[in-house]
Design a binder for these strands. Structure first.
Lengths: 189, 189
DNA sequence: GCTAGGAATCTAGCGATGCTAGATAGCAGA
DNA sequence: TCTGCTATCTAGCATCGCTAGATTCCTAGC
């Protein structure tokens, strides 16, 4: 029916807005993503964005971030595969860091914006939970998640320090190895 | 002489600009720090800021960040004292995380802005180097600094995840303990 | 103490930003 | 064909960082 055709156009345009935002942001940072440029990119005028995302730019960033959580979790899961122990940790770490490097702006939207989505609680949305669970599996965390939080923190911090040039880029493999050594197996009490 | 009096007024005003910026930013974020509000806060008009900081807002943020590096290094050094081993790591970690929590905006300027100051190289400025060296001392890193980079990354990431609510706040002590366990002593090869 | 000149400060404005109200065009169903 | 709703646009607001040019103030030399 006609309603479907309209809905289709609407959905397709929504996707184009998000793609344009993600690509531009990854290339030039979120400051370069303006509502006018976004509207230009999809061939409409500015206010049209607000019929798709009433919350404006911040809602667009949130939508990009949610897509990012799905993709990051997928990648980490794929990297883990059936590996266990130190190789598992290294593979997941590399996948995690690669994602952050390839999509700096998506990653920024995911973790540096004050997203209202709940984390680290029972009602955390599944797409946010999946990545955490994969990290836990990689380091074999069967406790209350504290170790996973620390592992995640290390990955998060290393990725950010790399990207802002605080850390020697060529030493990345050694850092991953050092990280894996420290998170493989149970530490002495 | 008169030149001194003028210079004194100038320096004092520069300090007031930085204080106002830091306080406002820590309270409401850098987006709330506008040149007009800053000018209001010090009782002058907007262009006066540019005679102190020709680079505008970004130069002000940089100046706040540099002060932050000094203070962070000082606190970590004080926390370390003569401690060694696991207590040293825990003390430094707590000091580091406390600083980030008390001065979120200063920390943001220090690490999330694209500061042109060089890191992780031989010509890194001393005030940036001092903190790194203290972290290295805390974990007893006598290698090439890779372990320190990982430790720093973990602190950095944990602090950010805490602040953006990605991680359970009440578990902080356990995270610090888990971190210390993994960085105390040399890991099995 | 007075005045010339330079430094300090202000007024006013530019272009860009996120966002919105009100006008208009276009398409659906009767 | 007409009516009414939705989609879209034009135009504008307040605010942002920043700057040119006018103006005021203070200092130095007489």
């Amino acid at each position: 029916m006609a309603e479907t055709a309209r809905q289709q156009r609407y959905d397709e345009r929504r996707g184009r807005i998000l793609s344009a935002a993600r690509e531009r942001a990854d290339a030039d940072g979120w400051a370069a993503v303006t509502t006018r440029r976004l509207a230009d990119a999809i061939g409409y005028t500015q206010p049209v964005l607000y019929s798709h995302f009433p919350g404006g730019k911040s809602e667009i960033m949130l939508a990009v971030a949610l897509e990012g959580f799905v993709e990051l979790a997928r990648r980490c899961r794929a990297a883990l595969g059936r590996r266990r122990g130190r190789p598992a940790i290294e593979a997941v770490a590399v996948a995690y860091l690669d994602f952050g490097r390839e999509h700096p702006a998506v990653y920024e939207a995911m973790f540096q914006e004050a997203i209202d989505a709940r984390f680290a609680s029972d009602d955390t949305r599944p797409e946010l939970r999946a990545g955490f669970d994969t990290l836990a599996e990689a380091i074999g965390d069967d406790g209350d998640g504290t170790a996973t939080e620390v592992f995640w923190g290390a990955l998060h911090g290393l990725g950010l320090l790399e990207r802002t040039g605080r850390v020697r880029p060529e030493q990345r493999a050694r850092r991953v190895a050092a990280l894996a050594v420290r998170f493989a197996g149970e530490p002495a009490p």
